[in-house]
């Protein structure tokens, strides 16, 4: 297929400020997203991720700072002139229009001639695998199909960036995984910059080039999924992305992932060891999850299910890890006022 879309644009947020009444949601928030990357804003509700997305889209106005898209300052540009694609959690398909008319809407608004629009609409629908459903009404489609229409509708206008607000939140697990792959493939092919909002850390790990972990309107850490998982900057990130044991090493807090903890005989050769009593055993198929109460509180280890025989509830057990697996954790910027 010929590249139907303009390549993605970079997004720069400069000291962005936003308050709702007395509540300051974002204060001097700065972030750079490179052109063509898949950036995920990850955070719990109230972390400011949705506000950030609304500001980039233009649904909300800035109290201060600036937003640039592809070098253009859009801080005061109204929504309808920002050339942004947006996909919503509840799809937001126009209920009174057919699938085709939904996709055609953005082209009509741009006064694209019919002769040019028709092949673009067909192409966009083919891209998301919805050929043949053009005449259906949105309510006649499944959730996954509706979300793919929304994707086609957002992409057909060749947006500078694509914003996605928890787009897979309403779908079941299998469908979500398949759509995650489709979105990744589409992005790789089209090169569009995607800003993706989610509270689902697994989704963030699977899809992103850049993950920005947000809490209380501030960046806890920004980096690739590998960086965030292997070198979390602080306690918050360590326990927000994946499971993490926190213990003290040389007087400072360190994180250790459950899969890096060794048990029993395998632990005895390792430099750092703790002793505990097995308090919980969970069989996860390929793995066994073992929680032991130690002097430093409960520690959780993930081990091969074959070791199951070695652990029994209530028995004393040795846990060990090597120094390079211990991740030093700084204080979170939100930890102290």
């Amino acid at each position: 297929m010929s590249a139907p879309l303009s390549p993605g644009k970079a997004v720069v947020l400069e000291r962005v400020r936003k308050s709702y009444g007395p509540v300051e949601v974002l204060r001097d928030f700065s972030l750079e997203i490179t052109a063509g990357s898949f950036c995920t804003l990850l955070g719990a509700s109230g972390s400011g991720k949705t506000t950030l997305l609304k500001l980039i889209a233009g649904f909300e106005t800035l109290d201060g700072g600036a937003i640039q898209i592809g070098g253009r300052d859009v801080s005061h540009v109204p929504v309808n002139r920002r050339n942004i694609g947006m996909v919503f959690q509840n799809y937001a398909l126009f209920p009174h229009m057919s699938v085709r008319d939904n996709v055609a809407f953005g082209l009509e608004m741009r006064r694209v001639p019919k002769a040019e629009a028709a092949p673009r609409i067909t192409e966009a629908l083919a891209m998301v695998g919805l050929e043949g459903l053009e005449r259906r009404a949105p309510r006649e489609l499944s959730g996954g199909q509706q979300q793919r229409v929304a994707l086609a509708r957002a992409l057909v206008i060749r947006p500078d960036i694509l914003l996605m607000d928890e787009p897979l939140g309403a779908l079941d697990k299998t469908l979500r995984a398949s759509l995650q792959r489709q979105i990744k493939q589409l992005q790789a092919r089209l090169g569009v910059t995607i800003i993706f909002v989610t509270h689902d850390q697994e989704e963030a790990l699977h899809m992103s080039d850049l993950i920005v972990v947000l809490e209380k309107g501030r960046i806890e850490q920004a980096g690739t999924p590998q960086e965030l998982y292997r070198r979390p900057a602080n306690r918050f990130v360590a326990s927000f992305l994946g499971e993490c044991n926190i213990l003290t090493l040389d007087g400072t807090p360190h994180g250790i992932r459950p899969e890096k903890l060794r048990l029993g005989a395998m632990a005895s050769t390792l430099p750092h060891r703790r002793e505990g009593v097995v308090s919980e055993l969970t069989f996860l198929g390929p793995h066994l999850r073992v929680t032991a109460d130690t002097a430093e509180g409960p520690l959780t280890a993930l081990t091969d299910a074959d070791h199951a025989t070695a652990c029994r509830l209530g028995e004393r057990i040795l846990l060990g890890f090597s120094g390079e697996d211990a991740m030093p954790l700084a204080d979170s910027p939100n930890a102290t006022p």
């Binding site: 309808n80 002139r81 919503f88 509840n90 809407f105 741009r110 509708r153 957002a154």
Partner: peptide, 14 residues
């Protein structure tokens, strides 16, 4: 739905 209006606006509707 507010999002319908937002969707139309991002698509270029004044």
């Amino acid at each position: 739905d507010q999002n319908l209006v937002h969707a139309a606006e991002t698509l270029g509707a004044g």
